[in-house]
Design a protein around this nucleic acid. Structure first.
Length: 255
DNA sequence: ATGACGGAAGTTTTCCGA
């Protein structure tokens, strides 16, 4: 079984790229973030023609998440129960053979100390409280998406220049490690990976060509699933397309 | 250079992302 996550920065613009990628990478579940599209615009039919079902949680202009899958999604939940939020950031569902998948678009946070940063920290705490219960209800769980947080310097192209800036602050990393402490594991680091492996590169200043990026898109697997994880990789291929998303897909393989 | 690049809204310029 293969699962993937991809922030596609507007499904309106990138639908053809997503369909091409699925054809070349026929994963079982693909979590999408930043649809920037309301639910009535979601292209269920296009995915169906490609052999995929889809459940979405959209929003006009910003945010929006979906789970695209070979098998049907059951017990679909939108956003974080118990955390009131105007924004469409989380969609969860169960897929055969009983794997709970949480696809999430974490808040950006803009700048440490800003209102958006405080919202990010509150959101992270809300996610964590709910996830603790969700993990005990569903021991085989995958949390994947655009976390907008780096684990440490290895995830940052310029850890000195970007020290304490957004995605790299102690507060954000504390919250990310608190998720790990619930009994989750960073699938990427279960395997040897190339140095300077990133999942996002700024559009500006030839960020991708110069590999000036950050690893902010993650796949976390629960302890019960960890023994089944056989590989995890970042697919930089679509970042080389014309009009690419600024993020690359991340893929995990389970036995 | 409080910028660049790219998307959305919507119409010219602003907000936002990361």
């Amino acid at each position: 079984m293969k699962l993937a996550t991809w922030n596609i920065n507007s499904l309106t613009v990138r639908l053809p790229q997503v369909l091409d990628w699925l054809q070349a990478n026929p994963v079982d579940v693909l979590a999408l973030q930043e649809l920037k599209m309301s639910d009535d615009k979601f292209p269920h039919a296009a995915f169906a023609s490609a052999g995929y079902q889809s459940v979405c949680f959209g929003q006009k202009t910003y945010n929006g998440v979906a789970l695209v899958s070979r098998a049907p999604a059951t017990d679909v939940v939108r956003n974080v129960p118990g955390f009131s939020d105007d924004m469409a950031r989380v969609i969860s569902a169960t897929f055969a053979p009983g794997i709970r998948v949480v696809g999430a678009y974490f808040p950006n946070g803009q700048e440490p100390g800003s209102d958006k940063f405080e919202y990010k920290l509150a959101w992270l705490q809300g996610l964590r409280s709910w996830l603790r219960a969700e993990l005990s209800a569903h021991p085989k769980l995958v949390l994947m998406g655009d976390f907008n947080i780096t684990f440490d310097d290895a995830d940052v192209w310029d850890p000195v220049g970007l020290k304490d800036t957004i995605h790299c602050t102690d507060e954000e990393r504390y919250e990310l490690n608190a998720l790990i402490a619930l009994g989750l594991h960073d699938a990427h680091r279960l395997f040897p990976q190339a140095a300077k492996s990133y999942s996002w590169w700024d559009y500006r200043d030839f960020g991708f060509r110069r590999n000036r990026g950050m690893r902010i898109d993650h796949i976390l697997v629960s302890s019960a699933l960890k023994p089944q994880v056989s590989a995890c990789w970042i697919d930089k291929t679509p970042r080389k397309n014309e009009r690419p998303s600024d993020h690359a897909p991340v893929v995990v393989e389970l036995n």
